[in-house]
Amino acid sequence: MGLAALAGCGNRHMVARHSVTHPPVSTPPASQALPFATVARPSFGDAHPVVWPGRTPAMHPVHGMDVSRYQTDIDWHTARAHGVSFAFIKATEGADWADPAFAGHWISAAAAGVPRGAYHFYYFCRSAAEQARWFIAHVPRERGALPPVLDIEWNSASRTCPFRPDPASVRAEVMTFLNTVGRHYDQRPILYTTLDFWHENQLWLLDGAQPWLRSVAQHPSDAYADEPWTFWQYSGTGLVPGVAGPVDVNAFAGSHASWAVWLAENTH
């Protein structure tokens, strides 16, 4: 099944194709959770601010962050009050590593009323099918969660996997992962990547995934030649009230009204 068909796939597919038992990660009952909302403008700083040529992050009113085990101390209520309208939380990497902070962040973000989703960091020396199964085994399927995310980029720091597949192989593996998790969660997945990876692997040829693009020196409409995007990671050194130390910060492509529509269409 291609990504373009994911919006129409229902739970009947997921029951037949998947039998993974999720770990006991729970969230507060709906009656206790705060309603999802945004502030007018985020009040974030930056440890290493840049001078933006032309379009800037401030043009976009809806902002959020992505976190992992490196963010050990988060006051999610404070972060939300200062403009964190969404969060993506690292869940897994490769086919045999799970982020130890995932469950805590997952529960605490929901308790503070922050819409959150999980992301997987791709490892080039395991198959996409294995990695999708690993992600599914660790991320619960919940109402209200944001779509699953694949983070794929060259990892020059890897001591165990210097392998760089050719672009066609990369795109095939990306499609395998996204189609597998898209069917399981019955959501249209998100694809995060960097500028060099995007161009070297011609990821614009893929159809159906929602792009989350990194660009810390230019607006993505400039850096990615007006490629449509959903999320933009504009800094890796953001300073967000409620978060100890620097954190990745991101913008949503649209207005507050379009964010509400996107949430309604992409969380269920």
Rank of each mutant, 00 (worst) to 15 (best):
M1G: 13
G8W: 07
N11Y: 10
V15M: 11
V15Y: 14
A16H: 13
H18K: 13
S19K: 15
V20A: 15
V20C: 13
H22S: 15
P24Q: 10
P24Y: 05
T27P: 05
T27H: 10
A30V: 14
A30T: 15
S31A: 14
A33M: 15
P35W: 04
F36L: 15
T38A: 13
T38G: 01
T38I: 01
V39Q: 08
A40L: 14
R41W: 08
P42K: 06
P42V: 07
S43F: 11
G45C: 09
H48G: 04
P49C: 06
V50D: 04
W52G: 01
R55G: 00
T56G: 08
A58W: 11
H60N: 13
H60C: 00
P61K: 01
V62F: 04
M65R: 01
D66W: 01
R69M: 08
R69P: 02
Q71N: 10
D73L: 06
D75K: 05
H77G: 11
R80F: 03
R80M: 05
H82I: 01
S85Q: 07
S85F: 05
S85L: 03
F88R: 06
I89L: 15
I89Y: 02
T92P: 06
E93P: 04
W97T: 06
P100N: 09
A103E: 15
I107T: 14
I107G: 12
A110S: 12
A110I: 00
A110M: 09
G113N: 05
G113R: 06
P115W: 09
R116W: 00
A118F: 01
A118H: 05
Y119A: 07
Y122H: 12
F124C: 01
R126G: 07
S127E: 05
S127Y: 04
A129Q: 12
Q131R: 08
W134V: 05
A137N: 10
R141M: 10
R141C: 09
R143Y: 11
G144Y: 03
L146M: 14
L146A: 12
P147K: 08
D151P: 04
S158N: 14
T160R: 00
T160G: 11
C161N: 03
R164I: 07
E173Y: 03
N179L: 00
T180E: 15
V181H: 02
V181Y: 00
G182P: 01
G182A: 02
Y185H: 01
Y185S: 00
D186I: 14
R188I: 15
Y192W: 06
H199F: 08
N201W: 03
Q202N: 13
L203G: 00
W204E: 15
W204M: 10
G208M: 08
A209T: 02
A209M: 11
W212P: 03
L213C: 02
R214F: 03
R214T: 10
A217K: 09
Q218N: 12
H219C: 13
A223K: 02
E227G: 02
T230D: 08
F231K: 08
Y234K: 01
S235Y: 02
G238N: 09
L239S: 15
V240E: 09
P241T: 06
P241S: 02
G242I: 05
A251M: 03
F252D: 11
A253H: 14
G254M: 09
S255R: 07
S258T: 13
W259G: 04
W259P: 05
A260L: 12
V261D: 11
W262H: 09
E265M: 11
H268S: 15
